[in-house]
């Protein structure tokens, strides 16, 4: 009897181990959304490539709890972000603000894109110029003759 009880009890082990996942109840869906947005955008300082939502570090747990407390007591997005930035600096943000030290970070990709496009057009232009460039006067005359001859039979074709 006892043995079978133990056996049945082991069935509940998985349920117990998953009980440590945080279950949070919100009265308002807006607050839940704000909380989720915040923990996805704030960075864990221990596991530096994780956000607060993904990190299991103890500090991340405490920072999540602090975020939750603030959200539940009616803080706005800016309130929480300012609170964290005042303590941990811009480092805590996965979406850094636009300022002098981060200017390259924000516009760098566009600069690269613009540079790439310009380079591409320059290459295309020089290549097409090379093809169209008929330097030899004799060649030019020949082309002209051929085209006029062609033009007489078909008026739709224009001269270069």
């Amino acid at each position: 009897m006892f043995k079978s009880f133990l056996l049945i009890a082991t069935l509940f082990l998985p349920a117990m181990s998953s009980a440590s996942i945080e279950i949070i109840e919100f009265e308002e869906p807006a607050k839940e959304q704000l909380y989720m947005k915040l923990i996805n955008e704030l960075r864990c300082l221990v596991c530096q490539n994780n956000n607060l939502a993904d990190s299991n570090a103890e500090l991340a747990q405490d920072m999540r709890r602090k975020t939750l407390e603030m959200v539940k007591s009616g803080s706005t997005y800016d309130d929480v972000v300012n609170y964290m930035v005042r303590r941990y600096g811009d480092f805590v943000l996965f979406r850094p603000p636009f300022k002098n030290t981060t200017i390259l970070l924000w516009i760098g990709p566009y600069l690269l894109l613009g540079g790439g496009i310009t380079l591409m057009f320059l290459i295309i232009l020089t290549q097409t110029k090379k093809k169209n460039n008929i330097s030899d006067e004799v060649d030019y005359q020949r082309v002209r003759k051929l085209l006029t001859a062609h033009n007489e039979s078909d008026n739709n074709v224009n001269l270069i």
């Binding site: 300082l45 221990v46 103890e58 405490d62 602090k66 303590r87 600096g89």
Partner: peptide
Amino acid sequence: PESVAIMDWGVYG
């Protein structure tokens, strides 16, 4: 135990 001062002082380790 609950990282109260820790967060105030911007400690991360």
